[in-house]
């Protein structure tokens, strides 16, 4: 019937009006006695409007149509004994009251609680997400410091090339120097060798001369010759002195 129209929104309407729509039968049975008698309200017009608003449909016409149809259906159901009022009807009434109370008082509490809880959880999740994004951004920043690394590398490469060339030149020169030094040392050693060789020769020469002289000295002929010569010299000297 009009059951689906009983929404949470409509649940904010007073309990008794719920009862009317919930179990239209029982109220009809009681000649619209108690639950339908509007409780003392300040503004009956807003009250009526709120009841009308609670009904499904768009225009007031369709709403009244629904209301009328459901009332007619309820009367028809009861008069034809399609709906039979018995013990359970009372329970239906109390259950409807309970549901309305729950919808009016507990549902908003639950809604607030659930919203608070969901906000809490979503805040935690969002916070962790922003923190993560920050961390990633930081990392991107630290990496982006190496952004112009290619140019630096190029420059460094040029420098290294130059260094290498200089190095090569250096090596070449150093080898030249080395070679010159080596040649010099060889020449020096030769010089030394030759000097020592000459010395040796001179020494041998003097020795052989001495030996020769000595051998000559021991030769009587030579002794005689020397003697004669010395005599001649002495004579010469004497002649001079005279």
């Amino acid at each position: 019937m009009n059951f689906c129209s009983l929404t949470l929104k409509s649940a904010t309407k007073p309990l008794l009006t719920q009862g009317v729509r919930y179990v239209p039968i029982s109220t009809n049975v009681r000649y619209l006695s108690s639950p339908s008698t509007p409780p003392p309200v300040k503004d009956p017009k807003t009250k009526a409007m709120s009841i009308i608003d609670a009904l499904p449909g768009n225009s007031v016409l369709s709403k009244t149509g629904i209301l009328g149809t459901s009332a007619a259906a309820a009367i028809y159901a009861i008069s034809n004994e399609l709906y039979i009022v018995n013990d359970e009807s009372i329970l239906l009434l109390t259950f409807a009251g309970f549901t309305a109370l729950m919808a009016k008082f507990v549902a908003p509490l639950y809604k607030d609680f659930a919203n608070a809880r969901m906000n809490k959880v979503s805040n935690i999740l969002n916070e962790s997400r922003t923190r993560h994004v920050d961390a990633i951004k930081e990392r991107i920043g630290s990496v982006s410091e190496l952004q112009n690394v290619a140019e630096t590398t190029k420059v460094l490469f040029d420098v290294s090339k130059e260094t290498l060339e200089l190095e090569a030149k250096n090596f070449e020169l150093k080898q030249k120097v080395d070679l010159a030094a080596e040649a010099k040392s060889v020449l020096d050693s030769w010089v030394r060798h030759e000097a020592s060789l000459r010395q040796e020769q001179q020494k041998q020469l003097t020795q052989s001369l001495l030996a020769k002289v000595e051998s000559e000295l021991s030769n009587p002929k030579f002794q005689e010759k020397v003697l004669q010569q010395s005599i001649a010299d002495v004579e010469k000297l004497f002649s001079k002195l005279k």
Partner: peptide, 16 residues
Amino acid sequence: MIILGGLLMQFMSINI
């Protein structure tokens, strides 16, 4: 619940 409901039903159906 059903017994209370039944009792109340009987009571309410006596008169207005």
